[in-house]
Design a protein around this nucleic acid. Sequence first.
DNA 1: CGCTAGGTTGAATACGCTCAAAGATCGTGG
DNA 2: CCACGATCTTTGAGCGTATTCAACCTAGCG
Lengths: 271, 271
Amino acid sequence: MKSPNLIDSELLNKDVPPLIRKFNFVQPLNMEEIKALMKMHDNSHFIDESTVFLNHGDVHKKCFIVTKGWAYRFNDLSNGSRQIINFYLPGDIISPFAVVIPRTTYSVASITRLEVSEFKPEYLVELVTTQPKLGLLYGWLLGRDDSIVAEQVVRVGRRSAYKRTAHLLLELFHRLKIIDETENNAFSMPLAQHFLADTLGLSLVHMNRTLKKLRMDKLINATSNEIILLDIDKLKEIAEYEAYYLEQIKNLSTIIENHTASNNQQTPNVA
Amino acid sequence: MKSPNLIDSELLNKDVPPLIRKFNFVQPLNMEEIKALMKMHDNSHFIDESTVFLNHGDVHKKCFIVTKGWAYRFNDLSNGSRQIINFYLPGDIISPFAVVIPRTTYSVASITRLEVSEFKPEYLVELVTTQPKLGLLYGWLLGRDDSIVAEQVVRVGRRSAYKRTAHLLLELFHRLKIIDETENNAFSMPLAQHFLADTLGLSLVHMNRTLKKLRMDKLINATSNEIILLDIDKLKEIAEYEAYYLEQIKNLSTIIENHTASNNQQTPNVA
DNA sequence: CGCTAGGTTGAATACGCTCAAAGATCGTGG
DNA sequence: CCACGATCTTTGAGCGTATTCAACCTAGCG
């Protein structure tokens, strides 16, 4: 057994699912692990754009890995307003707690046409118990999601519209950068302004004015489907943005060595 | 081996740590499991009130289980304002992702004098890999935390000050009720108004006025250290509060049976 | 008794909201 | 090929919720 780690160059291949690329970046994977992760990508299909495919209160029957496109988690309120909690980008898992939480407490919808890999929630239990390293990587994913949502609370709770917007754009930029979906300081952005408004807890009109102000201040350049960050340093300063809540990577090797019975003793290399 | 499940009456004992009571309520535990959880409570100590004991950016060296008192996770901004992300009540775990996330992205402080049990983050790996049921319960805890923070985003993003406040008070009430720290419709509340303000993203002055309005409307009765909810139904209606994001419990037995090699085949009973 | 922390209230201001209407862009069908 | 509808964006005007600043009150503690 004991196949060698997948070398980086192989993983630059765009056909490798983004979740695996992400994991491999955090902690180099061996073939056995990659196979286990590939099994999660067996059942792939598309979801049309602008489709609500999980409804608040639904029974949690499956999990999804986003492989292409954008989606978001939200809650609708009785007065017709909507709050977006977070976005799902390629490599993110939708409903990561489905094994243990019987019903969704939120809804999920696609923004763009979406490609997702669907897998049974129970598969995660198998993964965590049989593949400790993948279990830790899964934990890392959850911890990162938690940071993102926590940051969203701070953004919406205590920042001005202007700072909020700057902060969100930086976050999206960095998340996309990690999955190699940026170009220089730009990224393609399928979000109509009402998505941004519902994310940041602003009215559509005020969202528009805030973006205008950012444009006037020569900080961003927003065309219909692309955002260019003209002055990232300035934006970071305005937003008090600290990238590291997304970029944290821990050396998992030592943890794994101490807690694994056998079969994963290959080279303990880390990013 | 194979000891019988702990019967409920034994767990009414207040000396049993609240985390174990909570887990046992979700999924009856056997003695082996209780022992494993008790090991997490070996190293117990107190933290003074109003003490910041984890700072934004600190290296994640330990985890805590709150056994008595209240704490909170927050972020400070440069303009002097503070956003509270969530509260830690007895039975909650502080830094649940410490094994995989190297540094905190937030700060944590005590409100009251706090009793915590400190344990090594790595112990969680052992727990998850050797005790599948406890692993699932841990996952349930994380899923519930996620729901709470997600709900906080909605609260702060799209609700008026009045609704926000009603919603938060209901949430605290329900969380306390589960750990048996309520009396009828009242709970003791160590939160000065500035805590509520920093949780809900409001100024102190407006927080005060909002509470006054809730009092005038005969919905709550707030003395210095107790909150009485005078009309829970009305409050729920105002806040569009749905308790079930806290109360969800899944039948874990079947999942466990399918994924456990041996040693946990006792009575598959569920709440 | 005086200090400190928390709570309360008033007044002026501002940030963001609602209502309203008009422009821009794009796909589709006549 | 143009017209039409649909969706998204932009701008103006008036309003309202929540903020800031400031002062005073209250209770607890050394």
